Amino acid sequence: MVLAIHRIAHVLCKWRVPVIPKILKIANRVLFGVVLPPSVIVGKGTLFSYQGLATVIHKSAQIGNSVIISTGVTIGGRSGKEGAPVICDGALIGTGAKILGPVRVGTYASVGANSVVIEDVPDYAVAVGVPARVVRINKPEDVPRYDIFD
């Protein structure tokens, strides 16, 4: 439901409709506790766990296809750095993770719960800790399929 509201707001924002996208953003915030500005690009098949509860997304962030974002995640800016995070296709962002500044989380990369990412995470990597560091890089054939649920 969060993404349905967001997609309507995003289209209206692209069409430069002045007030309705802001109202839809506020509706998402009140109903689901997610801050998801209409200007954010969200790919197909992206999943916000528990409808994005306590999740905050920067207005210039880009989120790819089939990304899984857990609860309490912040994808935002960083003081002194211009730009916003780019989350590539198939990434998994764990509960409470913070992705800060103009960083790129690679294709099928995983960010552990409560990690703070302030540097790029390569494709297929697993990053954990504060600040996050890469602890493993998976082979493409060994990447877990989080998008398949029973």
Rank of each mutant, 00 (worst) to 15 (best):
V2M: 10
A4K: 13
A4P: 10
R7H: 15
R7W: 12
I8N: 12
H10L: 07
L12Q: 08
V17R: 11
V17C: 08
V17F: 10
P18R: 14
V19I: 07
I20P: 06
I20L: 14
I20H: 08
A27Y: 14
N28Q: 15
N28G: 12
N28M: 15
G33E: 00
V35H: 14
P37A: 04
P37T: 01
P37H: 08
P37Y: 08
V40E: 06
I41W: 10
V42R: 09
G45H: 10
L47H: 13
Q51W: 13
G52K: 05
G52I: 01
A54Q: 04
I57T: 02
H58W: 04
H58Y: 03
K59V: 02
S60Y: 13
A61N: 02
I69H: 04
T71E: 09
G72V: 01
V73F: 07
V73A: 05
G76N: 05
G77M: 12
G77N: 14
S79K: 07
K81D: 07
K81S: 09
I93E: 00
I93H: 02
G94M: 13
G94L: 05
G96M: 04
G96N: 04
K98A: 11
I99R: 04
Y108W: 15
A109S: 06
A109R: 01
G112R: 11
G112E: 11
A113E: 03
I118H: 02
D120I: 10
D120P: 13
V121S: 00
P122M: 03
D123K: 10
Y124Q: 04
Y124H: 03
A125F: 00
A127G: 01
A127L: 07
A127W: 04
A132T: 00
A132I: 01
V134I: 02
R136E: 13
I137T: 03
I137Q: 09
P140R: 14
P140I: 11
P140S: 05
E141R: 12
E141V: 02
P144F: 15
R145Y: 15
